[in-house]
């Protein structure tokens, strides 16, 4: 069986192509109704909106590929964000953004390791573990650490939200730039892509989602792989938390939790199998783009705000439905 390389590509990335096509069709539709959609300012702001969901989605993607599910990442994100902000304000208000992100990220790694202990050493299903740890982490944060919104964040966090690249002047004379947060998101996407493709641990993540028993027999250290996965999820969540509060210019301990199912939906929409072993970083990123596009562009088309949720629901169903039908056809069912 010889298939030409390009056809092979098309087959391998069929799912990604469908999602890409949906994004293009939606963009053209929105753009033809409101040409403002194509303005640099709007595109930059859309890209900025993908950052938080995107960072979370990368972690979620890893877990789903390994054949499990994690819903505690938003709780980890908000915990790391709030505790780090408080800590930094108390101990060293002048700390740089890189240090702050590292602290939050490492805190996230530790919390992720807690998940890994239950999932890996006690062999419990991720959904159950993270339901428990997620509500414990958030409950702990709101009970013992604080419920007050931090209105004055460390200066470097505020400064981070203002760093922009690729400046362009808009028609009205305003100069707009792309948020550096987007660069961070894409950098981590590439890093995870490379890690999955070229490191042994990365290959083991796919193997684990494909067949756990076989993975163990081949000689992978499953415990190590799972600590890597949940540690990475924690790190990315900590990063997402800090970036979120930096974008919002305040630290709200009630934020983020409640978005976890949409994040998972974005990843699954991007072609990652919910039963593991299958999926690409590119697809997950596209899934995030599509959901953010749907969520943020309805206003541009003139859909009244109280219609938004219904339309979001319909578009999610249409996109997931067309992908599902496509795949059925390609399998010849």
């Amino acid at each position: 069986m010889k298939i030409s390389a390009s056809k092979n590509m098309l087959k391998r990335f069929r799912h990604e192509f469908i999602i890409l096509a949906i994004i293009v069709v939606l963009s053209i539709t929105i753009g033809s109704i409101n040409s403002q959609f194509y303005s640099v300012g709007n595109i930059y702001s859309l890209l900025k909106s993908t950052v938080i969901m995107g960072l979370f989605a990368l972690g979620s993607f890893l877990v789903l590929v390994s054949g499990d599910i994690d819903i505690s990442f938003t709780a980890i994100g908000v915990f790391c964000m709030y505790v780090t902000s408080k800590l930094v304000l108390l101990v060293m208000p002048g700390a740089g953004i890189v240090l702050i992100m590292l602290i939050a990220g490492l805190m996230g790694v530790l919390l992720g390791f807690i998940n890994a202990v239950f999932i890996s050493l006690l062999k419990m299903p991720g959904l159950i573990v993270t339901l428990g740890t997620g509500s414990m982490i958030r409950g702990f944060l709101l009970t013992f650490i604080g419920v007050r919104i931090i209105n004055k964040l460390p200066d470097s966090m505020i400064a981070f939200s203002k760093i922009t690249l690729l400046h362009k002047a808009q028609e009205n004379g305003h100069i707009v730039g792309l948020s550096i947060g987007f660069v961070v998101f894409i950098a981590f996407a590439i890093l995870i892509y490379l890690a999955l493709k070229y490191t042994v641990t990365g290959r083991a993540v796919y193997a684990l989602g494909g067949d756990r028993v076989a993975t163990a027999r081949v000689g992978f250290n499953i415990t190590k792989v799972q600590f890597f996965i949940y540690g990475t999820v924690g790190f990315l969540s900590g990063l997402a938390g800090v970036t979120h509060s930096s974008f919002m210019r305040n630290g709200n301990p009630f934020d983020l939790v409640g978005t976890e199912l949409s994040v998972i939906a974005a990843v699954v929409l991007g072609g990652t199998s919910i039963t593991g072993g299958k999926g690409t970083v590119f697809g997950a990123v596209l899934g995030v783009f599509l959901l953010v596009l749907i969520n943020n562009s309805l206003i541009m088309v003139g859909i009244p705000s109280y219609w938004q949720r219904a339309v979001v629901g319909i578009i999610i169903l249409l996109s997931t439905g067309s992908v599902a039908l496509q795949e059925r056809r390609s399998r010849g069912v």
């Binding site: 199912l261 949409s262 939906a265 219609w307 938004q308 949720r309 219904a310 339309v311 979001v312 629901g313 319909i314 999610i316 169903l317 997931t320």
Partner: peptide
Amino acid sequence: LGTMQLFTG
């Protein structure tokens, strides 16, 4: 998740 949005919507 889609119908949750739809029904609530």
